[in-house]
Structure formats: structure tokens, C-alpha cells
Design a protein around this nucleic acid. Structure first.
Length: 579
RNA sequence: GCACCGGUGGUCUAGUGGUAGGACAUGAGCUUCCCAAGCUCAUAGCCCGGGUUCAAUUCCCGGCCGGUGCACCA
């Protein structure tokens, strides 16, 4: 990790932000190479998860009002209770202090004023200096960044801790764009924020990070994934039951579903994701899908598999990091927002054939119930309605009796408006379930770099090389004159301009000897270098040398064919050996 | 947040109570010019604040940042 971070800093992939002011923990800036690499990773993700799957893409705000997170559970479920010592200023976990001093377990679930009262009642003292903590306020430390929306403190807002909420809250409108048809998917690539207590390991745990998320909304009773589309994809699985022993399951997506190892929806996206990971150059010998242990899952997930990558340097101990989560979230999110929000978070699903159902209903005569039962009238009416659904035979006699709060009320059947009729149902209201591939872009970028990083020898000289896939490499091709004289520089500049006009990201470099320039490009992962030499400017038709990064071998290519040759190489339609 | 260790050019580092040296990299030039060659020259540094001192990059305190372990990790 150290060598890679040093290279990243030196060559402009990423570095810590605001270093001129001492730096701030958990924030990174992508430099020229890194910003390009990251953009390519995001674009390939968009191609595979949005375009190729026929899903839509949105771009929601990073700031959302407090009630959104009350609904999502992030406000309650994401708190640490802190108490600050008036004497020495140290902060401590109040719930932990109470658990240590009393028989209470799970003090975290108690309200803060109760926790404060317990601190008083048990004379709990500061572990650092021994001063009494009685009377100190207990503050909640929430891992969300808080802000004010508008002037003053009228409305509290939070920076989203995951992009998903931006999709869920807009579901009522998004379902209109999907014309109410399940399943449909919505993707979003954007920043999320968590005020981590302890940011670590460069891009791996930061306080501001980019997520690429897909929320696929499905009918739990009617929709199934097309597993056949990815059935042959090889995957390395690490099921929860195997984790004590460390045994992987090498299988295919199709077999994993057939054997019931992975939920079919999750498995489908493991297949899609695997294809994507391949295009961006993830090394599958250092990659696995690990199932969450039952106790490890988030509050919303019913099953979850993480993509994990080993980002250790060659020869070092394995260092597995989580780079994505593939979760079946059930209807948790939409149900919560339906509960808290003002709109409908369901989809109307029409039956193939309308169903005829027999339904008992009541329409009580309130002008009778009111005078007769006074304040209990409304409850009696509700009880009648419930009874009609439960037991229609109760309405067969002259009178109907219902219990309300332990008292029995008798109503003449004719005053209940009881009716038994056939109704036609065209369909049902479904709260969709959510399948969520959630990708940490920064961690994925880090993985791509770690897996591309290599050191080898060229002509007895040591070389550092990033073997980045051309699909994500920041620079597509570099163009050099062998020397900047005898017309070679002018010609090389023309060729560079032509390639740029063709849409290539081109680096032009005439500084230092040719070997040095090749090494510079090796370190930023440029897959191909074009060199204009004496032969180029003297012979007809003009040719240039094309040098491949990984093998360092080169071939002569007619300048006229250069654009087409590079396009084929980038698309994988030819390999360098074919040339 | 706790504990330990650390912070010197762009990068990696040596060293010091009297403001610093190297390597690599970078720029200009020369050179017998296709894989980090050689030569000349140049650019560029002691994390921040306070204290002690005639004098602090060095010693002390605090902060910030980093590494490792613990805790945390929707």
C-alpha cells in the first residue's frame, strides 16, 4: 500500500486534500491521472449497469432534509452517545460507561435523557480524570454531516450517507417514468458523506466518497431475474457458512442459483458485476464475493454479498477490503418512506384477468348509531366493518353484537348497512422489493490501481508499471519524437494532434531520452507509445514505431493506419502480437 | 476517540540548540540518441501554534496530519 500511495501522490492519481493547511483527515483529491481513471471507471459502470440493462439514471442532491433520514433510520440507528467531562474535556461513550457500571445491557437503545439520569444515579465518574459526570449533557454523535438549510436554524439538513436515499425518496415520480411497470431500475453515481471517527488507508475509508448505486424495484411475487444471461459467468463465492473454515466455492452464477447458495436477484448482479470487474482489469485471483454473516447485515438487508478485493502489495499478507455490496433490501426503504412521507410508494400491478371477489361490507346508519351510542359510535362502526370482513354469518340474524373496549353493543342488522356483493379487482398494490448493487467507486479505483501495480525488469533496469486496462487508462496513447530535431518533433506534434482529433487522450512528450519517456508512461499506465524516428521522416510511406507497455515490444505501423490500429487494440479486436 | 511510533525540497531520506546534505524526480543545455546512460547549470525543504533560550527544524506543551493496534464501520 505504501508504494502505491507514494506513486499515486507523485504521479497525480490521488493525494490528501488541503495539505497547504495541514491536511484534513478523510478527504482526498484526485489528480489529473486519477480523475481520468475514476471517470473511466464510472463510465464503464454506467455502460454496464445502466445502459446495457436498460435502466434509468438520475442525479439527486447530496443534501436532504431531516425527515428523510428519520424515515430511512439513519438518524436513529447511526448515533453514538457521548458525554464530555467538564473537568478534563475528554469525551466518552455514555452508553458504554453505563454498561460498565450497571447490569444494563444495550444502553445504546435508551433515550439520552434516561442515559443522563443513569449517569447521575450511579455516580459515574470520568475514566480519564475521575471527576463526576453527573449533570453533564449527553450528546448524540451522529455519523452524518449536519447542515442548515436556508438562513438561521429553521431547517436541519444532512449530507446523504448513501446515494440510495435520493432514489428512494423520488420513487413516486420515478415509477411514473417507468409507466408503473415492474421491474425497473434507477442508477445514480454521486458523492456520499460519513463523518467517520477514524478515516484510514488512503481512499479506502474517507469521509467523502463516490458511490455508484443501482436500485432495482421488483415485484417479490411476480418478477424473476434472467439468470441465463449470466449463468456461465465464473464467480468465487465465500458463503457465510464457509467463513469459519476459509473455504471458497468456485462455481458459476447459474450453478450458485441452482444450488440455492445465492438469492437469484443478487446472483444475477454478481454476474453482471463480474463482467464489469473484468473490463476494468480486476485480478480475479485477488477477488471474492463474501456473504454477510447474519449479525453483520445492515438494518434493511435480508441478504447481502460483498465484493472484496485483496489490495496487498506482492509478497505481503493479504489485505481484503470491501469494494461493493450486493443486497436484497426487501421493502424496508419504500415502506418506511410510505410511513413517513406523504406520497404513495406502491405500484399498481394489474392481473392478467380481473378477479371477481365476494366482499362483505357495511355502511352503518350513523344517524342511528350516534344518538344511541354517543362517543362510542365511531368505534362501533369500525368494529362492525371488521366483523363483516371476519365473519359475515354474524349479520344473518335480526341483531348484531360487537365488543368495544370490553363493552357489548347490540345493533339492529338493518342499521348496519350490511351488504354482500361481488366486486371486480383489476390488480393489486405492490410495495416493490429492492435489489441493490452498491459500488464504492473510490475503493474500486484503488483496487484497479493495486491490481495493476507491478515492478519488473527491462534490459536489466528496474521498472514500475501500471498494467491498466486500456478501457480505464487515463492516457490512451503517448507520442514522442525520438529527438526534437530534424523535423521529428514537428511531425510527432502533428500526429499527436491528429490522434486527439480522433478522440484519443494523448500525451506528447519530448523531454529526456526516449527510455525515460517510456518509463514515465509506464508509471501512469499508458498502454501504447508512438515514436517518430529518423525512418519516419525519411522513408515513404511514412511509418512510426508502436510500443506496447506490458511487453515493451514494438512494431512499425504505417502512420496512415495508426488510428485504426489503436482503435482495434483498445476494443480488444486485435492483440499486439497480431501486428 | 484511546495507545504507541512518526512528520526535513515534488518523492524518498541524512542530520543539527547557531535555519540544512544526499538520492531520485523536474526544467534549460550538451551528448555517439528506442527503454530510467553521461556531463554542466538551475528550481525546490525543516507540519502549525505556544513555551524555554541571545538563538528552536532540533528541547518542552498543545494542535493538525500519517502509520500500526484497539474501538467504530447502515
Amino acid at each position: 500500500m505504501t508504494d502505491l500511495v507514494e506513486l499515486a501522490k507523485r504521479r497525480g492519481f490521488f493525494f490528501q486534500s488541503s495539505e497547504a493547511y495541514g491536511g484534513v483527515s478523510g478527504f482526498y483529491t484526485y489528480g489529473p491521472q486519477g480523475a481520468s481513471l475514476k471517470a473511466h471507471v464510472e463510465e464503464t459502470w454506467r455502460q454496464r449497469f445502466a445502459l446495457a440493462e436498460g435502466h434509468m439514471q438520475i442525479d439527486a442532491p447530496t443534501v436532504m432534509p431531516e425527515p428523510v433520514f428519520e424515515a430511512s433510520g439513519h438518524l436513529d440507528g447511526f448515533d453514538d452517545m457521548l458525554v464530555e467531562c467538564a473537568e478534563c474535556g475528554e469525551s466518552h461513550r455514555a452508553d458504554h460507561l453505563i454498561e460498565g457500571a450497571t447490569d444494563i445491557e444495550e444502553a445504546e437503545s435508551l433515550p439520552t435523557d434516561e442515559v443522563a439520569a443513569l449517569l447521575d444515579a450511579h455516580d459515574i465518574v470520568c475514566p480519564s480524570c475521575g471527576a463526576a459526570l453527573a449533570g453533564q449533557p449527553v450528546e448524540e454523535f451522529n455519523l452524518m454531516f449536519e447542515t442548515n438549510i436556508g438562513p438561521g436554524t429553521s431547517q436541519t439538513g444532512y449530507l446523504r450517507p448513501e446515494t440510495a436515499q435520493g432514489i428512494f425518496v423520488e420513487f413516486p415520480r420515478l415509477k411514473e417514468y417507468a409507466r408503473g411497470q415492474l421491474p425497473f431500475g434507477v442508477t445514480q453515481i454521486g458523492k456520499s458523506y460519513r463523518n467517520e471517527i477514524s478515516p484510514r488507508n488512503a481512499l479506502v475509508r474517507t469521509r467523502e466518497f463516490t458511490q455508484a448505486e443501482l436500485e432495482l424495484f421488483v415485484d417479490p411475487d411476480g418478477d424473476a431475474p434472467d439468470v441465463s444471461a449470466v449463468a456461465d459467468v465464473d464467480v468465487t463465492l465465500y458463503p457465510a457458512a464457509n467463513q469459519p473454515d476459509g473455504d471458497y466455492v468456485e462455481t458459476t452464477v447459474g450453478d450458485a442459483v441452482a444450488e440455492g447458495i445465492v438469492d437469484p436477484w443478487v446472483a444475477y448482479y454478481l454476474g453482471v458485476a463480474t463482467e464489469w470487474y473484468e473490463t476494468i482489469g480486476v485480478d480475479f485471483d485477488r477477488f471474492r464475493y463474501r456473504q454477510h454473516q447474519p449479525g453483520e447485515r445492515a438494518h434493511y438487508a435480508s441478504d447481502c454479498w460483498d465484493a472484496e478485493a485483496d489490495v496487498s502489495a506482492p509478497g505481503e499478507a493479504p489485505e481484503w477490503i470491501e469494494i461493493a455490496g450486493y443486497a436484497y433490501r426487501g421493502d424496508y426503504d419504500l415502506s418506511k418512506h410510505a410511513e413517513h412521507g406523504t406520497e404513495t410508494f406502491t405500484v399498481f400491478k394489474q392481473y392478467d384477468e380481473p378477479k371477481t371477489v365476494e366482499r362483505a361490507s357495511v355502511d352503518p346508519d350513523m344517524s342511528y348509531l350516534g344518538p344511541e351510542f354517543g362517543g362510542a359510535a365511531a368505534d362501533v362502526a369500525d368494529a362492525l366493518a371488521a366483523l363483516a370482513e371476519r365473519d359475515r354469518t354474524a349479520f344473518e340474524g335480526e341483531e348484531v353484537a360487537v365488543d368495544v373496549d370490553g363493552e357489548t353493543y347490540t345493533v339492529p342488522t338493518e342499521k348496519t348497512g350490511f351488504e354482500f356483493a361481488e366486486e371486480t379487482e383489476a390488480g393489486r398494490h405492490v410495495t416493490p422489493h429492492v435489489v441493490e448493487p452498491s459500488i464504492g467507486i473510490d475503493r474500486t479505483v484503488y483496487t484497479v490501481l493495486a491490481h495493476a501495480y507491478d515492478e519488473d525488469e527491462v534490459d536489466e533496469g528496474e521498472r514500475t508499471v501500471l498494467r491498466l486496462d486500456p478501457a480505464v487508462a487515463p492516457t490512451g496513447v503517448a507520442v514522442f519524437p525520438l529527438m526534437d530535431k530534424d523535423g521529428m518533433g514537428e511531425r510527432a506534434r502533428e500526429i499527436a494532434a491528429d490522434l486527439r482529433a480522433d478522440g484519443y487522450d494523448v500525451t506528447y512528450d519530448d523531454s529526456g531520452n526516449i527510455g525515460r519517456r517510456y518509463r514515465r508512461q509506464d508509471e501512469v499506465g499508458t498502454p501504447f507509445c508512438v515514436t517518430v524516428d529518423y525512418e519516419s521522416v525519411t522513408e515513404v510511406p511514412e511509418t512510426v514505431t508502436l510500443r506496447e507497455r506490458d511487453s515493451t515490444e514494438q512494431v512499425r505501423v504505417p502512420t496512415a493506419d495508426l488510428g485504426a490500429v489503436l482503435a482495434d487494440l483498445r476494443a480488444g479486436e486485435t492483440t499486439f502480437d497480431d501486428l
